[in-house]
Design a protein around this nucleic acid. Sequence first.
DNA 1: CAGAATCCAACTTGATACTG
DNA 2: CAGTATCAAGTTGGATTCTG
Lengths: 128, 128
Amino acid sequence: MSNTESGTLSAAFNRGKVMSRDCPSRAILKHVTSQWGVLVLVALMEDTHRFSALRRKIGGVSEKMLAQTLQQLEQDGFVHRVSYPVVPPHVEYSLTPLGKDIGRRVADLADWIELNLPTIIKARQSLA
Amino acid sequence: MSNTESGTLSAAFNRGKVMSRDCPSRAILKHVTSQWGVLVLVALMEDTHRFSALRRKIGGVSEKMLAQTLQQLEQDGFVHRVSYPVVPPHVEYSLTPLGKDIGRRVADLADWIELNLPTIIKARQSLA
DNA sequence: CAGAATCCAACTTGATACTG
DNA sequence: CAGTATCAAGTTGGATTCTG
């Protein structure tokens, strides 16, 4: 079988699937690591939020992008959406167990960057 | 001190800065979690690679995007570029210590997705 | 081989306005 | 409040061509 990858037999290193152009992981990865996807996950790791609360919390998101991001993450099974049929509308977003699992890793990444930002900036300057 | 965030005093939860529209972390986060940034980091976690090797390994990248991504990651101090002045040109890309640190987290994320892909797909269907 | 430069198509994003 | 619809504008991305 012609293998676009390195042709390794070891499925143990299951890393490599995502390297293929058409690996389904790519789509999930894209949602999760999207500009607003990351921040939504981080925000929801802290607590359940309403739509407008999320919008206030995540500086710079437009309504459109927030709605779109939430829909993607909901479809992937990471975000749980609960709509209370009252007026005015009341909708709450939270993480599913799966969402918490991946959210932890994403938040970890974001935290690392915040923590190491000084180091990164220094490193960048020493390259200039 | 007036705090635009939730007004918490605990800097221990340094999460929150990245939520501001103009936090410098946002730029780094964007490079690292960009579509190709993720895959470059994952690939370089395994080994040093030459440009064309990376291009072959990462299915779907164009030369342009690969070059651009590598430059961003190099400027952020995550990727080390070594150019041997021979003909034909020989350039090697590897991760700096900083790059390995963050690369581990990114690879972790990618691995998690690959590993849980079946679960995710099932979850998605049960929502349909 | 490693990339820079160019050109153009396609998708993404953001304001704004509108609806249930 | 929680979105959707619309449209303009910006950005990304890819194919191609060219160079050291």
